[in-house]
């Protein structure tokens, strides 16, 4: 990890030119409602919404697929375990029998629902949040009244991850230069623990120095941002569209409960 990849943040699609605050708001609205769904049809609608937004953002298909693949690696495990761990319905027939193990219909349904919901959320986040460059995300969060501390944590993590990673590599090289080869033994555990401890100490020291440097430039706990955001008619349309979709998810979900 030489640099922090922001490949999706640069572009000139409709989504990229939208106000970051609106994108952030829409992303929260859609992902929270999607996460609450229990029924497949609204989840499929959410997946379609995410896919639609991704198309609007004009993201490179390879990049999107690569990022989706990472999420779906975890989901594969759900497909392996859920069908066999969710109990069969009363008098229900197993979908599949492997020796003493019986796969339940309910388990398969649950795995499918989770798959659809996860992919819907990832697509929505890729389209709406990964398209915001880091220098806009902080100010946008600040304007949306996200607690100041969270904004600071995000900003500094982004900035100093690279520096701390370099320090880690420098120390690892110094260890290698003295003949250290990691193995499964106490010597390795101890050396790695010291390395991690040292990294923590150095990061702390650096944080103190950065804070001093900021105080010297007049910092008193609050960031003043130069970013200027304007809400256009298209931003309002995006917000309205996303609100309508979120309302549709909830409506579908509640009608099913009404039917049940």
């Amino acid at each position: 990890m030489a640099t922090i990849d922001q490949s999706l943040a640069h572009g000139d699609s409709i989504i990229h030119t939208m106000d970051p605050r609106v994108r952030l708001g829409c992303a929260v609205l859609l992902t929270v409602t999607t996460a609450l769904l229990h029924w497949l049809p609204p989840a499929l609608l959410a997946l379609a919404t995410g896919a639609g937004l991704t198309l609007l953002a004009g993201l490179r298909p390879q990049t999107v697929i690569r990022r989706l693949a990472v999420v779906n690696v975890f989901i594969v495990f759900l497909w392996i375990f859920l069908p066999f761990s969710v109990p069969l319905a009363a008098q229900g027939e197993p979908v599949l029998r492997l020796g003493p193990l019986a796969a339940s219909r309910a388990g398969v349904d649950l795995a499918l629902l989770i798959t659809v919901k996860s992919n819907a959320i990832v697509l929505t986040l890729l389209a709406l949040m990964a398209t915001i460059p880091m220098q806009d995300l902080g100010p946008a969060m600040q304007r949306l009244k996200v607690p100041e501390k969270l904004c600071h944590i995000l900003l500094f993590t982004y900035r100093y991850l690279f520096v701390i990673h370099q320090e880690y590599r420098t120390m690892r090289r110094a260890m290698a230069a003295r003949g250290f080869t990691p193995g499964t033994n106490r010597h390795t555990y101890r050396a790695v623990a010291w390395l991690m401890g040292m990294l923590l100490v150095r990061s702390w020291d650096r944080a103190e120095r950065v804070h001093s440097a900021m105080r010297c430039r007049g910092f008193r706990g609050r960031f003043h941002s130069m970013a200027r955001f304007t809400v256009s008619a298209r931003d309002v349309m995006l917000l309205a569209g996303c609100t309508a979709m979120a309302a549709a998810f909830i409506w579908l979900e509640t009608t099913r409960r009404g039917l049940a």
Partner: peptide, 13 residues
């Protein structure tokens, strides 16, 4: 005040 280590001073994106 210019710090010895620029990485301590530069922190913005």
């Amino acid at each position: 005040f210019l710090f010895q280590n620029s990485d301590d001073q530069l922190f913005c994106p």
